[in-house]
Design a protein around this nucleic acid. Sequence first.
DNA 1: TCGGATTACGTGCACCGTAATGATC
DNA 2: GATCATTACGGTGCACGTAATCCGA
Lengths: 291, 291
Amino acid sequence: MIEIHLFEQLVAFASCGTLSAAAEELHISQPALSRSMQRLEEELGVQLFDRQKSRITLNEIGELTVRHARNLLMQEASMIEQIRELDRKKRTIFLGFCTPVLIPDFVSLLSGLYEGMTISTEVTDDIDLVQRLRENKYQLAILHDKPDENEFFSLPVESEHLYVFLPPAHPLADAVGLYLKDLDGQTFLLYSQIGFWDGLCRREMPNARFLLQQELNVLGELIENSALPAFTTDYVMKRTQSRSDRIAIPILDEEANVTYYCTCLKSEKTKFRPVFQSFSKNSSAIRNEQA
Amino acid sequence: MIEIHLFEQLVAFASCGTLSAAAEELHISQPALSRSMQRLEEELGVQLFDRQKSRITLNEIGELTVRHARNLLMQEASMIEQIRELDRKKRTIFLGFCTPVLIPDFVSLLSGLYEGMTISTEVTDDIDLVQRLRENKYQLAILHDKPDENEFFSLPVESEHLYVFLPPAHPLADAVGLYLKDLDGQTFLLYSQIGFWDGLCRREMPNARFLLQQELNVLGELIENSALPAFTTDYVMKRTQSRSDRIAIPILDEEANVTYYCTCLKSEKTKFRPVFQSFSKNSSAIRNEQA
DNA sequence: TCGGATTACGTGCACCGTAATGATC
DNA sequence: GATCATTACGGTGCACGTAATCCGA
């Protein structure tokens, strides 16, 4: 076996043309490189260079060896890359969400349960989520529904209800409950990453205008400093303290009630038992549904 | 870059199952191997092993790494093999002969002219010889004829004449010359590697029997110790002293006269100039033909 | 108690860099 | 004189082996 650094040095020489230049590139002394090349020839048992007194050049076999060496070095680099990549994958739990709202809670939950693991999250629609669960690109996904397929294990973990968030001066501010159609035609502040709620709002309020906001804190500022109606949910309100004096009025449409299902491949169920357990402990309603 | 001996040691461990066994196989101490594996993990930045107190085993990534490593080691070994093989080829002159008789003289000639080169010889028929010259599997070939193709350079280098080698008591022993057909029906000793002469003999003496001999010295013994007629040539007689009292009678058939042509690709002509020159110096007859 | 892995420790040598030499332009 | 390769030489880091330790069957 010939150590790979000798081939590396050979390739450096081939690229640079002289031992001196290559030695500099390799951050070693010229004599060291000279000896390395002598050793490489010795270990191969083959002449790689034509040596004039003050000049050294690759001969035909040397050129061939350089081509082979370049190939070998690429091979090794790619191999190391693949190994590290697999390792990274093994140390990461990939999560898919149908809504961004749940991400923080899930990340902190999983970080606690699987110490040292990286938690990677993405938001996309249910169809993609199911597909990528199947391909094992996600280990867990948070869906709107239990998927039909038998290959998945699913557990309801959270529910969320939609509210309209009105300033006290708004004409509807004293309503006990509202249907979305009652709000049609108005202009709303809306979080752009709200996910599936977005579709519901546009369907039930075809004449409303939505001022989409990319940044949550910008949205918060606008809610505080404008009279524009906005939307929120019980889940969001429970976890954020609003500094505004707005009034939250529940939406009465049936679709304004959502249950989220944490889902994984059945084959991975045991691996994520701690996750599911943490939810069945916290909610008796969910425990009932599980049974 | 990770040195290849670390991968080699990893593979040895994978084959042996324990560090101790692998260390023995590698002829290093157990602690040395233990440290090497720690270092491999460190350089990869990846855990390869599950470590119990008194037991170490490959984990999933370790197994993957072993597969990759085996592959890399094969790659390197094959690469080194190819380099050495090309080197060997570059240090060898491959010669093809239509007759084995000329081999010793050519080998000694070329050994003298190209010091350090290995001379490799084969005997086959003219068609193969020309084909392999073209493929550069032979650098030189000794043919019966100048090949027609323009891609070759050819020079007549030797001529050979066939004789029948009779014991003094043979009825035809006092002939001045003989045609092969005069000898038909008799039984002959014949050197099995005689090449093209063989075909001539069988064609002109369809009723003769030939006792083929593989070994030249066995043939010599039989010639000395039997009354069976045999064949020889002037070329052979010039170079061997026969201890027998046999009489050599020239064969008068036209095909019993052969001229040999030393042939190479035109592109290689300069490389073999010394060979061709040595023949044009030695033989004025050939010099005439060359002109 | 033995076999296996890791840690501790001292040592040798392999490889490095500096310096000197030789050679070419 | 400048550049480049090789040889000479002295120093050092590092990888090795031995020994000790720990652990489990």
